[in-house]
Simulated assay, not measured.
Amino acid sequence: MRTENILRRTERLRKAFPSLAIDGVVLFVFESANWQSVYYISGFRGSSAGVLITEQETCLITDGRYMTQASEQSPFTLIPQGQRSLVEAMGDLLKQKDCRRVGLEKEKVSAKTFEQIQGFVKDVEWKDASQLLPMLRRAKDSDEADLIKRAGMIASNAYRAVIAKVKEGMTEKEFDALLEYTVKKLGAEGGWGNHGFIVASGPRSALPHGVPTDRSFQKGDWVTVDFGALVGGYLSDITRNFCLGKPDTRAREIEMVLLNAHKEAAIALKPGASGKEIDGIARRIIADGGYGEYFTHGLGHGLGLEIHENPRLSPLSEDFLQVGDVITVEPGIYIPGFGGMRIEDDYLITESGAERLSGNLEQGLILL
């Protein structure tokens, strides 16, 4: 990550201090949990660290395993954890800097950690800053958009390579493993990390989040694959469908409804459009096609360092799209006992509309 990006982000963070009435923000990563927040603001990608940002300073605490890595990745002042716990080291730092009102991501910190830090610094007033980093991370800069685009291209190329090897008898798990391997082979860090790909064939494709099983692909099956890649910490999120042989007539009808719903929703993406409005465009097309009751989730979500971020496209969304948002569009139809499909791509909101970032895969049903 470029140092100028880190410095720009810390300045944006500081500008939010008055609204929360704080004089500092603390971020933690424990065993890789919440690495996204720490990485975004500091550039550090290790599995254990504490970050303190005050009005004047930026400090990063980590242990001996990561001191060299941290010095290479982050411009923050490095503080050795030493023989202390990470929480105790942060408590000592807060006392040293005389911080009195501190923001903490309470949604990311365990009750035990919060009790410990309160015990180490009893005179600090803690404010919930859980929404601060998601707010900063929402608008993607050009470097972030480029990483998501690269992740989309790698995932697309991997998918093409893998479906060329599909045959009857291959299992969902085998397809999933080959796709994950190929994504890495083509240069990605991996797939989705803690989130596995979705591979659901035949009647199982009616499961929106169907995890891969030992079910074998059969003649006439269509298969829904929700997949992506991780590049430089940033993710792509794509869903495609293929069929072994000639698909059912009803499957073709569902495909056409979804293609139309996706296209019209994507055309409407622009700054100022509401998440509810965009969702409604796709939902009306699906309902007019006779499948309204089978579209059971929101149309899309933000994407970046995490697979689900703000903003949201859904009937309940109160979000309005902004320049720099990266959003998925993923209409789906799922009929229990029959099967389902979803068509998903990733879009960057620009001044003039939206740019597709998720590779150049055709959206229609691929026949093998």
Score class of each variant (00 low, 15 high):
Glu4Arg: 09
Asn5Lys: 11
Asn5Arg: 11
Ile6Arg: 02
Arg8Gly: 12
Arg12Lys: 14
Arg14Ile: 12
Ser19Val: 07
Ala21Thr: 00
Val25Ile: 05
Val25Ser: 00
Ala33Trp: 11
Ser37Leu: 06
Val38Leu: 08
Gly43Phe: 02
Phe44Ile: 04
Gly46Cys: 08
Val51Cys: 01
Gln56Arg: 13
Thr58Tyr: 06
Thr58Asn: 07
Leu60Cys: 05
Gly64Tyr: 04
Tyr66Ala: 06
Ser71Lys: 09
Pro75Arg: 02
Pro80Tyr: 03
Ser85Asp: 09
Leu86Val: 10
Asp92Pro: 06
Asp92Asn: 11
Lys95Arg: 13
Lys97Glu: 09
Arg100Lys: 11
Arg101Ser: 10
Glu105Ala: 13
Thr113Glu: 10
Thr113Asp: 11
Ile117Tyr: 02
Gln118Tyr: 08
Phe120Leu: 11
Val121Pro: 13
Lys127Cys: 15
Met135Gly: 12
Lys140Arg: 09
Asp141Pro: 06
Asp141Val: 12
Asp143Val: 13
Asp143Arg: 14
Ala145Val: 14
Ala145Cys: 15
Ile148Leu: 13
Ala151Cys: 12
Asn157Val: 10
Asn157Met: 15
Ala158His: 05
Tyr159Ser: 09
Glu168Thr: 15
Gly169Asn: 15
Ala177Gly: 08
Thr182Val: 09
Lys184Ile: 10
Leu186Pro: 01
Gly187Glu: 00
Ala188Phe: 02
Ala188Met: 02
Glu189Ala: 11
Gly193Glu: 07
Val199Tyr: 06
Val199His: 05
Pro203Cys: 07
Ala206Met: 04
Leu207Gln: 12
Pro208Gly: 11
His209Thr: 09
Val211Gly: 07
Pro212Ile: 11
Asp214Arg: 10
Arg215Pro: 03
Phe217Pro: 03
Lys219Tyr: 14
Trp222Cys: 08
Thr224Arg: 07
Thr224Tyr: 12
Thr224Ile: 13
Asp226Cys: 13
Ala229Ile: 14
Leu230Ile: 06
Val231Gln: 02
Val231Asn: 02
Gly232Lys: 08
Ser236His: 07
Ser236Ala: 14
Asp237Ile: 03
Thr239Gln: 05
Asn241Thr: 15
Lys246Leu: 08
Thr249Cys: 01
Glu253Ile: 07
Leu258Ala: 05
Leu259Glu: 11
Lys263Thr: 12
Lys263Gln: 14
Ala265Val: 05
Ile267Tyr: 15
Ser274Arg: 10
Ser274Cys: 00
Ile278His: 02
Ala282Val: 04
Arg284Ala: 03
Ala287Cys: 00
Asp288Arg: 00
Gly298Ala: 06
Gly300Gln: 03
Gly304Val: 08
Glu306His: 07
His308Glu: 08
Glu309Leu: 09
Asn310Cys: 06
Arg312His: 14
Arg312Met: 15
Leu316Pro: 03
Ser317Arg: 03
Ser317Leu: 10
Asp325Arg: 03
Gly337Gln: 11
Phe338Arg: 12
Met341Gly: 03
Glu344Lys: 10
Ile349Ser: 03
Gly353Asn: 09
Ala354Pro: 09
Arg356Met: 14
Leu361Asp: 01
Glu362Ser: 10
